[in-house]
Amino acid sequence: MILLPCPWCGPRNVAEFGYVGEAGPRPDPASAGPEEWRGYLYGRANPCGWVAESWYHRMGCRRYISVERHTLSNEVRPLATEGAGR
């Protein structure tokens, strides 16, 4: 089981977290067309390599955190602490 570096709680088992998804900005709802909006809703790059993603520390501090995870090795490194996009 991989460990996630929670900036508030330290390294914790991934089972304590809820997976939110690949991190990315929400498009401006006033100007986004269907293609851009549905890309945000459903489109995932799913690369083999480093990906920025959000996790929710459900069984811990209840903060949303962002990390970078390597999808091949599952190596994880901190990204930003808060407000880093969903």
Partner: peptide, 13 residues
Amino acid sequence: WEWVENWLQTQHP
């Protein structure tokens, strides 16, 4: 609860 926290923490801190 998680939904509310998500919008507050990640979109409108």
